[in-house]
Design a protein around this nucleic acid. Structure first.
Lengths: 232, 232
DNA sequence: AAACTTAAGTGTAAGTATAACACTTATGTG
DNA sequence: CACATAAGTGTTATACTTACACTTAAGTTT
């Protein structure tokens, strides 16, 4: 008789799923990666990337595995968001779902790979209805993103390794849904002292070109540990 | 054949538990309510208040039921904190646990009821080792409490309905582990404009007595919705 | 090659919020 | 009636935040 049988056998068990809310930033817009559900019920309807936890697999491992299987994405910034345990949340049976929140630079998941995996980036304004409580999860994820952006320079997870000031500012503007003054923005960001200015320029969006920056991993980490508070 | 069988039967199921991190504030100290585990394995060891989710019961409902069964506490401020899903976290079998974070005015759970339920308030400095990953949960709960205290006047959940300025300040000092200037503290708190000053005084801690305050529920709610940021 | 267009880049001053600081007041006790 | 104790109160200096407009770089057009 297994230990589990011995102690806990009188208690019920549940299917446990994970669902990932994947944010990206591209062309000045915050986007969500979604796809059409690949299994019944509700097959073919818009859904977050989710699946069932397997035996012998931790929740975190399940979230990573499922993301990889469905998108080919690996080493993605992910953290647990919240569990959803309403009895009737899945009409096909009792399933407890743990929602994860993930940030990726949108470029890492291109048009090409998109179609291969049947996934799509959708602007947050143009979200179609999602199955079950997935829209609620997105709401919650967005709130977390906003809070995070305020307490850490987290936006960096969403940009390519080298980026320009105007790009960074556009990201914050998309997150906060507000216009920011570029002089004040630069001042604040540079005062954080986590950026390294490169010699190269990005000329894709202007003739003059904008200087590229990378961020200083060590200083960034220190800043985050120190509990920086970044208000706009 | 049930819907669930039909669609999800090939996936494994898991025991799901909830564990509550219950913070209280008494005598100038932040405290945690714990008890000795009432079932095997690890029966008799220090533990958070936890139990298994039942069939037909949401996670939130389970957290509330278990808290009530084990402490008699009802209508407590609770919110989900984080799920714990490591495969080996419970040595007696695979159990996924959803941790909840709860705040109560310590007076609502007195010495008398304590002994009746075998529960104890323990100062955060004097925490005994807790079973499994419960200490980790407490860590996480404490971090949440600190963040919350900064973004909302959440401390009110931890005080009796009527309280004095020195009490409120002591609470914040306990949460932040820092001394605050009482003039500046008063100024900031009063500037929030959520307190109602009463005529009565509390004389338990000084001859002069300190005025009692209640907080204005309506204004408080507005403030929280507006996303106030409260730094010390 | 000169004029034009476009986005990038820069500084300052006024206002607001924060932080530091010490004495007075009320009241029960000895 | 003096004493002890915690509650209560304002001001000033400093740092931070906000508002605001012109110059620069470089490719494109004439």
């Amino acid at each position: 008789m297994s230990k589990e049988k011995q102690y806990y056998s009188e208690h019920p068990t549940f299917h446990v799923a994970v669902d990932s809310i994947i944010f990206g930033f591209d062309q000045g817009e915050l986007k969500l990666l979604i796809h059409k559900r690949q299994f019944e019920p509700a097959k073919g309807e818009w859904s977050l990337f989710g699946g069932f936890v397997q035996k012998g697999e931790s929740l975190d491992a399940a979230a990573n595995r499922i993301l990889f299987e469905l998108t080919g994405l690996d080493k993605v910034y992910m953290e647990e968001l919240q569990s959803y345990g309403e009895v009737e949340r899945d009409p096909a049976g009792r399933v407890i779902s743990v929602a994860y929140y993930a940030l990726i630079p949108a470029k890492e998941f291109t048009e090409a790979t998109s179609s291969q995996y049947g996934a799509t980036w959708v602007g947050l304004k143009d979200l179609p209805p999602l199955i079950m409580d997935h829209s609620q999860m997105v709401e919650k994820g967005l709130r977390r993103l906003k809070r995070r952006a305020a307490s850490q320079p987290i936006g960096f997870e969403l940009l390519p390794r080298e980026f320009t000031m105007p790009q960074l500012q556009a990201l914050y503007e998309a997150i906060y849904q507000a216009e920011l003054d570029k002089r004040n923005f630069r001042k604040k960001i540079l005062a954080m002292d986590v950026l390294i200015k490169l010699d190269a320029k990005d000329k894709t969006s202007s003739r003059k070109g904008a200087f590229l920056y990378r961020f200083d991993q060590k200083k960034y980490r220190k800043l985050v540990e120190g509990g920086y508070n970044f208000t706009m």
